[in-house]
Design a protein around this nucleic acid. Sequence first.
RNA 1: GGGGGAAUGUCCCGAGCGGCAAAGGGGGCGGACUGUAAAUCCGCUGGCUAUGCCUUCGCAGGUUCGAGUCCUGCUUCCCCCA
Length: 417
Amino acid sequence: MTAFKSDFLRVLDERGLIHQVADPEGLDALCRTGVQTAYVGYDATATSIHIGNLITVTLLYWFQETGHRPITLMGGGTSMVGDPSFRDDQRKLLSVEEIATNIESIKRVFGRILRYGDGPTDALMVNNADWLLKLNYVEFLRYVGRHFSVNRMLSFDSVKLRLDRDQSLSFLEFNYMIMQGYDFVELNRRYGCSLQMGGSDQWGNIINGVDLSHRMGGPQLYAVTTPLLTTASGQKMGKTANGAVWLNGDLFSPYDFWQYFRNTEDADVGRFLKVFTRLPLGEIARLEALGGAEINEAKKVLATEITAIVHGREAAEAAAETARKTFEEGSLATDLPSVSMTRTEFEAGLGVLTAFVKAGLLPSTGEARRQVKAGGLRVNDVLVSDERAVLGSADLTSDGAVKLSFGKKKHVLLRPE
RNA sequence: GGGGGAAUGUCCCGAGCGGCAAAGGGGGCGGACUGUAAAUCCGCUGGCUAUGCCUUCGCAGGUUCGAGUCCUGCUUCCCCCA
């Protein structure tokens, strides 16, 4: 692949954001002929998007940054079907209400990353329920369905897994790729959108839209996918003990988010800086080159920059400061995540095990008991050795709280009030 | 419609002569070592008012002192035939 001439593709390429491109020369040329429109679709399968989705939002960010108009497409219609791509089982069907609440909740993140409005390069928020839900079945089949070859659809890698394993692929799910293909054509028609982007798992679905446009006599459409992000040791990104790394603060706090990236493996630092942050490449090269323990400085920059993008600069700085006090100074950071409880409840005598469960650090007293044996619990930085110990006023620090620590990294302040 | 197979510890995969809180992995968590890293090693990986009690093997019944295991019905999924 030769060097791109358009600002947009050049930035993506330099930052390692490109996995595949359909018609790279054509797209490169198009991006140099004025304001273009591109979209990424987001399914409403949860109340938040997660770290894996953040990369595609980043694509839209750079798209807007280089002078174009991004569209975030909410899958209000497609979520009623469920994308079967690379899944080995059928998704649970979501109710209309669930989809609606999910969309409302998901929307909140985008506003921080993209600039929405009415200007020529302002982002648009669109919902495919607007056109998919009122389609007439037979009409749709004759108009769109005839352009799809089942033979070809069966050959896509995204569904092969299911078929090869002799697992059923319902007709409902099979229609997902047709709907997504149609979305692309419809967005082109409504907004002149000529580029669809997404994760590498979406390649097949996106190409379906490109083909459909051809077959229906529409314009040339383009596709860009990003690589699937894995850690250097081969794990998929974004999984923690408590589930996915969500972007909504109510599901995954800014502090935890910061910590997640602070704990990046050495080998991933440079790559993640390029992919997620907006720092200049020169600066990234400098940070990446830090050796040994010094690379921790780069990890802090990485954590703060990404957190700032998702939760705002202020929240990011706060998380960094809390971490600094806790880990470097060893002092009691008063803004650690805290859990409050009533004074009477506290003074009635609170067992250590129960305290950790109440603080949300552990799921059960049984687990707490095990952690005491394993030496993983601390109260005010003192190792808990007796599982029958009871907390009392004597354990309150001058700040009026008890610091509970699970392992070396998870700390919570318990405040009787 | 007919025939055959499957469902196990609420993360996943997977053993399981009628005595089972149920083998073994993976993943995850904790500990040691480090740099809040990786690799490695060790431990843990149903719940609780805890020398005991309660709930788990698709669902509902039954046989039995005792059922994940045997019987009956049901549900879901898969395969083959029509």
